[in-house]
Write a protein that binds this DNA or RNA. Sequence first.
DNA 1: GCCGATTTGTCCGTATGTATC
DNA 2: CGATACATACGGACAAATCGG
Lengths: 247, 247
Amino acid sequence: MPKAKFEGIYRSLRQKIEAQDYPYQSLLPAENELTCEYGCARNTLRRALAELTDQGYLQPIQGKGVRVIYRPAGKTAFLMGVIESFQETIARNELHAVTKVVRFAAIETNERLASQSGFLVGEPLWAIERVRYLDGKALIRDVNYFSQAMVPGLTAGVAAHSVYEYIEKTLHVRIATTKRKVTVERATTRDEELLDLDGYGSVVVVSNLTFNADGLLFEYTQSRHQPAFFCFEDTATRRRPAVPPND
Amino acid sequence: MPKAKFEGIYRSLRQKIEAQDYPYQSLLPAENELTCEYGCARNTLRRALAELTDQGYLQPIQGKGVRVIYRPAGKTAFLMGVIESFQETIARNELHAVTKVVRFAAIETNERLASQSGFLVGEPLWAIERVRYLDGKALIRDVNYFSQAMVPGLTAGVAAHSVYEYIEKTLHVRIATTKRKVTVERATTRDEELLDLDGYGSVVVVSNLTFNADGLLFEYTQSRHQPAFFCFEDTATRRRPAVPPND
DNA sequence: GCCGATTTGTCCGTATGTATC
DNA sequence: CGATACATACGGACAAATCGG
C-alpha cells in the first residue's frame, strides 16, 4: 500500500532484483519498456531507478542500459543509510535480545552536553542509559538524551521496550534525518563494568543527532559497542572530488 | 564548470548554506522564489534540493518550507557517503602524508579471495599493500586488488602516488559505486609490525568493493586503520523523503 | 472549525542532448 | 551514419500539508 506510485515501482523492482529475477551483472529492460510495463511516465520510473542506484542495486550506463550490481549478502548487524532502532535490527536478524535500563533521569543541558549535541544550555532532557544484551552477552551501552518538549511522558518502562516505537506510534512524531559519526575509543571503567568486552580494551562509539520531520533536533545518542559485534554497511557514489585534485 | 544546470544550483546553494548565508534552523526561500532567482524550472531546482537533503543539509517540510539543518563541524578524517581517495582526504584536511608501498605483485584470484571479493577464480589481479603515514605515524595499512584487465599498466611507482588519479586521469575510467563494510578486528602480527598501534590490540577494517561506470567490479580493498585516527560521518534518512530524477 | 493562500509532493508529456552500438 | 538508450530540462496539473484569518 505505498502511497506514491514511484514507491510501488521501486519495491517491485527491488523485489525482482533481490529474487535474482534480474540477475547480477544483467541489464534491465530499457526504460521505455518498463514505463509500458508499469503504466507510468518515464520520470516516475526514473525516480524508482534513482533510488535503487543510490542504494547500490543498479548502475546506469548511458547509451547502453542499466546494469544490476546487487548480489545477496550475509545478514549484518547494522545498516547504514537507513535509520533503524535496536528493536528493528534484532527483529530483522532474528536475534534474542534483552534491554536493561540502568539510568533514567530528567536533567537540564549543561555546557559540555550542549557543545556535543547542539541542544541549548538549560533545555530539559531525558537522560537514559541502557545496556543491550544479545544472547546473554552485554554488547551495547546506549546513552540517550531526548528533548522533554518533543518527547513528553517518557518513562523507564517505555525505555525498556522501544523509545522509537513510542515516539512514532504514540506521539506520532515522524523521524526524518540522522547525522551519525563513528569512532573508536578506549573503554572507560564504566564500559568495562557494564559490557562483556571479551579482552577488547576499546569500544566503537556511534554518535547520533536525530531530527524530526520539522527539522528540529530531538535526540542525541551515544552508542558504545563491543567491537567484535559491530558492523556497518554502506553504499557510496563518486561525485566530483570535494577538493580540487592535488596533483 | 558544472555541465548540468542542476549541479550549478546545487553548488551555489550548498556554498550559501555552508557560509551560513542561510543559517542553521532557518527556512529557505520558497521553491518558486528560488526558481526565479536561478532562472530554471521547478523540477530542476528540486533536484538540487533533493541532493542537499540526502546529504544532510536540508529538511523539507510539506506545506511549510525547507529547513536548514546543516551546522559547520570539525574536520574529520574520513567521509562516508562519497568516494574519496586517500590523497583527497589528506588534501581536504591539510595533512602531511606519506605512502609506502610494501608489496606490489601480479597474482591470480584464488578461492578465498574470490569468495570475499566477487572476482572470478583465476582472474589476473594486481595485489598492492601500502602503509599510510600521517605526520610520521603509520596509521593505515591498505591491501588493494585491482583487475589487471581494467587497470592495465599499473606500477609500484603509480601505487606510491595515487592509483585513483591514474585510473581516472590516465585511463579515463570513471569510478561510480562503492559498497563498503566497516568492522573491528584484533590486530594481526603484520598489523603490529607495520602500524603504530599505540597500545590498541585491534584495527578498524574497511572493506570496499568498487564498480566502474560500466557496472563491472574492478577493485577490492581492505583498509586497516589505527583505531584512534579513524572517524567517519554519515547522514541517514528514515522512510524516504525525495529523490526526483525528474529532469 | 472552515476556508483560502502558500508551499512542498507527485505525476505527466514533451523536447533536446549525449553516449553506445 | 542511424537507431537505441540514458541524461537533462521545461512547463503544467493536481494532491497534501501548513498556517492565518
